[in-house]
Write a protein that binds this DNA or RNA. Structure first.
Length: 138
DNA sequence: GCCAACGTTGGC
DNA sequence: GCCAACGTTGGC
């Protein structure tokens, strides 16, 4: 199983909204960056992703599961090849892991979140995943 | 093919 | 509100 991190501004799409979407989940659409697209394409059913609130919140707040692998993003211009996946909320972290906490943890110094702060779909290593789950209280 | 201008993202 | 990082656009 692979691990990811997806970002959303809570004013656009929040963790609470993701939870409200329930088992059906939602299309994770609107990604318009080629590296992010490659990550979407590499996602497999049952992969997990951290849900990160950017701008307001600045914290990893929950975990989602990939419930449909990459398909053409219906919100993209006709003819373009942007992709999206479908995800559903799995569980919140008991304690959100803030950006400050990630920065303060030496073992997370190489995380994409710090290095490529503007990338909206990032991959997460298994080590990073476990450390963040620990920090999040699970 | 280079690079300046500009728009967007996202942290502070 | 500012600004750094980065992607895109368009003139040359």
């Amino acid at each position: 199983m692979a691990y990811w991190l997806i970002k959303s501004e809570p004013s656009t799409w929040s963790w609470d909204q993701q939870v409200s979407a329930g088992e059906e989940g939602t299309f994770w659409d609107g990604v318009r960056n080629h590296l992010a697209k490659r990550h979407l394409a590499a996602m497999r059913l049952k992969d997990r992703a951290f849900f990160y609130h950017s701008n307001e919140g600045k914290a990893i707040i929950g975990v989602v599961e990939v419930i449909r692998e990459a398909f053409l993003d219906p919100t993209a211009e006709p003819g373009s090849l942007w992709l999206c996946v479908q995800v559903k909320a799995l569980s919140p972290l008991r304690r959100p892991v803030t950006l400050a906490t990630v920065k303060a943890e030496p073992r997370l110094a190489t995380m994409a979140l710090l290095k490529y702060s503007r990338l909206s779909v990032q991959s997460v290593t298994q080590d990073e995943w476990q450390i963040i789950e620990e920090l999040g209280g699970s």
